[in-house]
Write a protein that binds this DNA or RNA. Structure first.
Length: 490
RNA sequence: GCGGGUGUAGCUCAAUGGUAGAGCGCCAGCCUUCCAAGCUGGUUGUGAGGGUUCGAUUCCCUUCACCCGCUCCA
């Protein structure tokens, strides 16, 4: 069933390595499961993805007018917080408890179970009994199952100095909510954005870069008044879906899946995933690119009061055996005072959380095409072409002399330098036949090639060749930079 | 974590218990006035570690990575 789709993924992975998009981490030492490196083209592609996100969400956002679909104008600001945070952050966020469960494995049935739950989990072999109660069960001793990466702070540090690499960038935003409010004059509603690495000891890294142990997130925490949060949730849900389609993901391959009511966290009034039909999945299956979650006031309250727990639909501070909070919050006031309405409240949060590596992988998969183009005798030959949206293409333009003499290389180099100086990622190639050079650029997704020929000296123009249509037009050299910039703006 | 498969040049593949070949690619040059296959020359390898052996890419063990299925994915 998945035959051709699997073959497709193999080709994409091979191209990524061959052309320097993605390499296995530490490959010369045999690789390291769950980690990947980006090569010279991959880093450009991923930077473009990040840059597109940051521009669209932050730097080009207009805080003076409401964007289409938004209930009202709003501000967007950025932060860059550290990867290692105060350990208490993860205790209050709930990650600590979830990430340090003891697990037992059954050597007989190969099952893996949470040690504190085995008395209530039916044995897979004999469901009438619970795990460990069937006489064939062969359980290991409870073992630590650390889903967060642990590290030690300080050269002489001991276990008491243990800290964790963040499993999400979101908490760096929440703990800086007050700092941002106090330092920037933002008013609710507003969003704080962050791009950065996160780390999770995933059980099974799989499917190329899709599930990695070190990965990069692009997260927004959008703070709004509680009674307006449903509208903002709907806005961000649609806005984020449209972001992918505008960068070239076909809607055939993308879907917005609303979580069913029983999937939702108790405090959430909505979560939706943007999902992509990756080639490594069976037909009809999708993998998550981004989750847009309505998180209520859960996070700010957790960092005020301490770790929260759901009791009969109410969020209450979880207490320990001594009746005190199990994990104390900061005790700082993270509420917001609206001086228009003279009301104080804890903002609700809409969280669009995107995976930068997953997005990059989706753009790679979406771009991969095999089609046919004529050779110099007019015979159709197969061609591999990466149809990146120009905004994310690693290289925007390639400049060639048609032949390597008659002053053409000098003219081509001048055009190349002009593009460089204009900040356009471009490349120069005088090697081999012109057709071969076009194909090389096709395979790395360069949208436009500019060729200097014998006529250039007479008419001062070059041929601009389009990657997708193969069409060629003449463009005056004087207008080349402006033409590429115009096309990049779309 | 379990089970199955795979691992030879940058890529696709070949071969062998006795110095590893080809095509493509890449590089240098020639040729060339717009879509990869013209000419000359050059370039590179048995995933890692150990064992058996006079000698291992080949046989054995271990390990690592990748793929498939399960498990997991807070």
């Amino acid at each position: 069933m998945a035959g051709t789709r699997e073959g497709l993924m193999d080709k994409i992975v091979a191209l990524c390595k061959r052309r320097g998009f993605v390499f296995q981490c530490s490959e010369i030492y045999g690789g390291l499961n769950g980690f990947w490196d980006y090569g010279p083209l991959g880093v450009e592609l991923k930077r473009n993805v990040r840059e597109a996100w940051w521009q669209d969400m932050v730097s080009r956002h207009d805080p003076l007018d409401a964007p289409a679909g938004a209930p009202q104008p709003y501000q967007m600001v950025g932060v860059e917080t550290s990867i290692i945070m105060h350990p208490q952050v993860w205790k209050c966020s709930g990650h600590y408890d979830l990430f340090v469960d003891k697990m037992v494995d059954c050597k007989e049935c190969k099952g893996r179970f949470r040690a504190d739950h085995i008395s209530s989990i039916p044995c897979p072999v004999k469901p009438s009994k619970m795990v460990g109660q069937h006489d064939k069960c062969s359980l290991t001793a409870p073992r630590d199952f650390n889903l967060m990466f642990k590290t030690i702070i300080g050269a002489l540090g001991t276990e008491e100095d243990a800290a964790f690499l963040r499993p999400e960038t979101a908490q760096g935003i929440f703990v800086n909510f007050k700092n941002v409010c106090d330092s920037t004059r933002v008013k609710v509603p507003f969003g704080i954005c962050q791009i950065g690495k996160s780390f999770r000891n995933e059980i099974t890294p799989r499917n190329f870069t899709f599930r990695s142990r070190e990965f990069e997130q692009m997260e927004i925490e959008f703070f709004c008044p509680p009674d307006e949060s449903p509208q903002w949730y709907a806005y961000w849900r649609d806005r984020r879906f449209a972001w992918y389609t505008r960068l070239g993901i076909k809607t055939d391959n993308l879907r917005l899946r609303d979580h069913a009511a029983d999937e939702l966290s108790h405090y959430s009034c909505g979560t939706a995933d943007v999902e992509y039909a990756f080639p490594f999945l069976d037909g009809g299956e999708y993998g998550e690119l981004e989750g847009i979650a309505h998180r209520g006031d859960f996070d700010l309250r957790s960092h005020m009061e301490g770790k929260l727990k759901n009791e009969n639909g109410q969020l209450l501070v979880e207490t320990g055996p001594d009746g005190l909070p199990k994990w104390r919050g900061s005790g700082k006031d993270l509420t917001y005072f609206d001086d228009q309405t003279r009301q104080r409240y804890t903002p609700h949060v809409i969280e669009p959380s995107a995976g930068a590596d997953r997005g990059t992988l989706a753009f790679l998969c979406e771009a991969y095409h095999e089609d046919e183009a004529p050779d110099d005798k007019g015979q159709l030959q197969s061609r591999v072409v990466m149809r990146f949206h120009p905004r994310i293409a690693p290289i925007k333009a390639a400049v060639f002399p048609l032949i390597k003499k008659d002053g053409q290389p000098e003219q081509a180099k001048a055009v190349y330098r002009e593009l460089r100086e204009a900040g356009i990622a471009c490349t120069y190639d005088e090697q081999a036949a012109i057709g071969k050079r076009y194909r090389r650029q096709d395979e790395i997704g360069t949208p436009w090639c500019l060729t200097i020929d014998g006529e250039t000296s007479n008419d001062g123009a070059v041929t601009l060749r389009d990657r997708d249509s193969l069409q060629q037009i003449r463009v005056p050299i004087k207008e080349v930079v402006a033409e590429i910039q115009r096309r990049l703006r779309g």
